[in-house]
């Protein structure tokens, strides 16, 4: 439905009048960066700003309300601090701290997998881009192919495989598959092959640097942006994965917070009238969702400057 808000809003103002003003404005101010703001551009960007931000804002506010305020109050109003405290107490007492346990599980799975991913992915992407070895081309194609393979289609076979090696129910049954991250290898490969001058490595080689030395002393320090990028994407992918732990970790004590949210949802009476005694109110579910996303938000804040500066850093090459 939100499409209904943004599309007409953007289209309605795309009339001929707005268009011609925009063109005139564009022609008048020749240096691009000093052009006066184009109203059409501003409008489109604002419409999408609302689309992306209002649901998040609503979620933030919902955690401060009672269920009654949620239904009858202004949707974008603040409830009360005591409402927030009440929701917090109700949520944390659900099955005695279950929410903290789930968050801890998510953190353990995501960070262990992240560490393995970086150790494995960066050297592999580097080698594919900068070195020659037999089978390089095959490995590159295999990486692309596996990267494109919808990994959820492999969840059921993965379950059978993990079961066969008696890892089912162990946390490694999700951490190890998480650590396999061909997308990261491909990002690293693209980064090194577009942003890293081969002459630099050739010079180091002439100076007698070993291949590992070149990687460690020259490539790795220059690779900070792509390390951040791979680390970030990998962490987010791991933290937000639902299907794999849903299938591989049957025990509620082992759920990551994503799967935990599904459990909470099952106990919200408005969505599931047959719920038993363990009722969860909608504001509590909103608060749990907020808790579940906070780490990813924090990570994003932390790596944003790398993201902006780092994506295809070839631009900085003089």
């Amino acid at each position: 439905m939100p499409t209904d808000i943004r599309r007409p809003a953007a289209a309605a103002h795309a009339g001929p009048a707005a268009g011609s003003t925009a063109r005139r404005a564009g022609r008048a101010g020749r240096p691009a960066r000093r052009r006066p703001p184009n109203p059409l551009r501003a409008l489109a960007l604002t419409a999408f700003l609302l689309f992306f931000v209002v649901p998040v804002l609503w979620l933030l506010l919902a955690a401060t309300k009672t269920d009654d305020q949620l239904v009858h109050g202004d949707p974008l109003s603040f409830g009360s601090w005591s409402g927030l405290r009440h929701n917090w107490q109700a949520l944390t007492s659900y099955q005695g701290d279950a929410i903290f346990l789930w968050l801890r599980n998510s953190a353990v799975y995501s960070f262990l997998a992240l560490a393995i991913t970086l150790c494995v992915t960066i050297p592999a992407g580097y080698a594919l881009a900068m070195t020659e070895f037999r089978g390089r081309r095959t490995l590159l194609v295999a990486t692309l192919v596996v990267m494109l393979m919808p990994n959820a289609t492999l969840v059921v076979p993965l379950f059978l495989e993990i079961n066969a090696v008696h890892l089912a129910g162990s946390m490694w049954s999700v951490i190890l598959p998480y650590s396999f991250y061909p997308f990261g290898v491909y990002l690293t490969y693209i980064y090194f092959s577009t942003a890293m001058p081969k002459e630099l490595l050739a010079a180091a080689k002439l100076d007698g640097c070993s291949e590992f030395g070149v990687f460690r002393r020259i490539a790795l320090p220059l690779a900070t942006p792509v390390v951040a990028l791979v680390g970030f994407f990998s962490f987010v992918a791991n933290w937000t994965n639902y299907f794999l732990p849903y299938v591989l970790l049957p025990d509620s004590d082992q759920f990551p917070v994503q799967v935990g949210l599904g459990t909470l949802l099952n106990n919200v009476p408005q969505f599931n009238p047959t719920v038993g005694s363990l009722e969860v109110q909608r504001p509590e579910l909103a608060l749990a969702t907020l808790l579940a996303i906070t780490p990813v938000l924090v990570v994003f804040l932390f790596s944003q400057r790398f993201l902006v500066a780092g994506m295809l850093a070839g631009a900085t090459k003089d």
Binding site: C119, V120, P123, T131, G135, R136, L139, L154, E161, S179
Partner: peptide, 24 residues
């Protein structure tokens, strides 16, 4: 050296890319 750099990745590729595909 190239093989050394990619070896751990290849192990994961086989274990969690190739083997499940063959299983499927």
């Amino acid at each position: 050296a190239g093989h050394g750099f990619v070896a751990p990745y290849v192990v994961l590729l086989i274990a969690f890319g190739l083997v499940p595909t063959i299983y499927a």
